[in-house]
Nucleic acid binder design. Structure first.
Ligand SMILES: [Zn+2]
Ligand SMILES: [Zn+2]
Ligand SMILES: [Zn+2]
Ligand SMILES: [Zn+2]
Lengths: 141, 141
DNA sequence: TCTCACTTGAGATTCATTCTCACCAACCAG
DNA sequence: CTGGTTGGTGAGAATGAATCTCAAGTGAGA
């Protein structure tokens, strides 16, 4: 239950928080902007403030419930932190986002950081390209 | 000569553009924000508009003279596109930026994109961590 | 139910970046 | 050299994502 998740991380269980978490669970797209979340909730009849969405997302992130990604050009997107770590590849034409995990790269990153005298705490890897004809739904150009 | 570079990419040779390119050449830090460039030029007596800096940087980027990086939290930084491609590792305490190149990772990225049906056109890889005691100049915490 | 610290919604605010527009400066033909 | 044309520039206004403010609302323990 989502209420559990909130309690576990020390956040009071409130309607807006539940709605936001719920939407992240069930939305068609795994990666959503604050604006999108706000709009979708508003359209489905909720009375919610945009500030509340941003606030909740920041809290969820701090609590490790979600992760934040900044793909080039676009606004910040959030996704539920479920399952194993992964990185992203984004189609620069249609915006489609695919996920991948590559052990070789992950390991290598740690080695590189170590070699340079850093203690690795995080990383951001995003590939950009064009997805192949059939899949690409670019709105013409 | 910087005038050449500008002409080669089809940009008219003007004083502001030369000053900005020159600053990127000689600045202490390889990675600079638009604001920093603006401030440094202003302080050294130039009369230049912030809009001009942003405009020029956008044009330089489009022309491939510089690259743009968006490290998490901070504002966008630009650096001269000289020498081979590299990625970055940033200290989350003191902000120091080191560069690295890793063939294994670069190759792997291409394979991953291919496997997923993408034609890779670009990528952004940034590692975050803490640099070791001696080198870290964190302003206390 | 009562209470109160924590939350929320609406709107104001911030701040990086972009836009507007009257003025100005490269560049070239004359 | 010029003068004209074209594109570039500076100042300030505008934009837009994200944050802050604050009066009003609401969970959850007593
Ligand atoms: Zn990864
Ligand atoms: Zn993802
Ligand atoms: Zn790379
Ligand atoms: Zn660099």
């Amino acid at each position: 239950m989502e209420s559990e998740e909130l309690r576990n991380v020390g956040l009071k269980v409130t309607t807006p928080r539940l709605k936001i978490l719920g939407l992240l669970e069930n939305a068609k797209s795994k990666h959503m902007t604050a604006e999108t979340i706000y709009r979708q909730l508003s359209e489905s009849g909720e009375v919610i403030g945009l500030a509340t969405v941003y606030r909740a997302l920041a809290q969820f992130e701090a609590a490790g419930l979600i992760t934040r990604h900044q793909f080039e050009g676009g606004q910040t997107v959030f996704e539920l932190e479920r399952g194993p770590h992964h990185d992203h590849i984004v189609c620069v034409r249609c915006g489609r986002v695919e996920e991948f995990y590559d052990k070789v790269i992950e390991d290598r990153q740690r080695e590189i950081a170590e070699k340079l005298g850093f203690t690795l705490s995080d990383h951001a890897l995003t590939l950009y390209g064009e997805c192949s004809g059939g899949t690409c739904t670019a709105k013409n150009g």
